[in-house]
Computed example of a mutant assay.
Amino acid sequence: MWAINSKWKRVAAIGKELGFKWGGDWTGFKDYPHLEMTGGLSYSQKNAGKKPSLSLKFKIENVTVVTVPPKTEVASKVS
């Protein structure tokens, strides 16, 4: 049972500040524990092959928002 209380709403607010879409904002079925990173794209844009522009955002008290582009790492197989 998912009890949607002030703590869940705080998690949702933080996720939305970081650029996530929250299932609690959906107009049909409400999926409150659902957070997804869309990179600002719609499903049709992603299905058409458009790549999202993702970055990490941090809010630090009494400091302006800092944006750090994510690092791209290539995994290598270790034998």
Rank of each mutant, 00 (worst) to 15 (best):
T64G: 08
E36L: 14
W22Q: 00
A3W: 13
Y32P: 11
G40A: 06
P70G: 03
E17C: 07
E61N: 11
D31R: 10
S79Q: 04
P70E: 07
K77E: 06
P70A: 11
T64R: 15
I14D: 01
I4K: 11
S6F: 04
I4V: 14
G15V: 01
S42M: 06
F58W: 09
L35F: 06
E17W: 12
S6Q: 08
G49A: 01
T64V: 08
L35K: 00
G24H: 01
K51N: 02
W8D: 05
P52I: 07
P70Y: 06
K51V: 09
T27H: 05
W26F: 14
K51I: 07
G15P: 02
V74P: 00
A13N: 06
S53E: 15
G23C: 10
W8S: 10
L54H: 13
K51D: 12
G39Q: 10
G40L: 14
S44Q: 13
W22I: 03
K30M: 01
V78G: 03
K57H: 09
L35E: 00
G19M: 08
K77M: 04
I4A: 15
K46Q: 11
K71H: 10
N62L: 15
E17M: 09
N62I: 05
G23N: 07
A13P: 01
Y32H: 11
G24E: 01
Y43G: 09
S79F: 04
S44T: 03
T38C: 07
K46P: 01
L18T: 03
W8C: 08
W8P: 03
K30V: 14
K9D: 06
G39H: 04
N62H: 13
A13Q: 10
K7W: 01
K50A: 15
G24P: 05
N47P: 00
P69S: 07
P70I: 12
V74F: 03
S42D: 01
K59D: 12
F58T: 15
G15S: 02
P33H: 00
L41F: 07
L56R: 04
K57L: 15
F29C: 11
K30T: 05
P69Q: 00
M1R: 14
P69R: 01
F20D: 02
W2D: 10
D25N: 10
Y43Q: 09
A48S: 15
P52Y: 11
G49F: 13
L54T: 12
F20G: 03
I60G: 09
H34R: 05
V65E: 14
K71L: 12
Y43W: 15
S44W: 12
T38I: 08
G40Q: 09
S42V: 06
T64I: 03
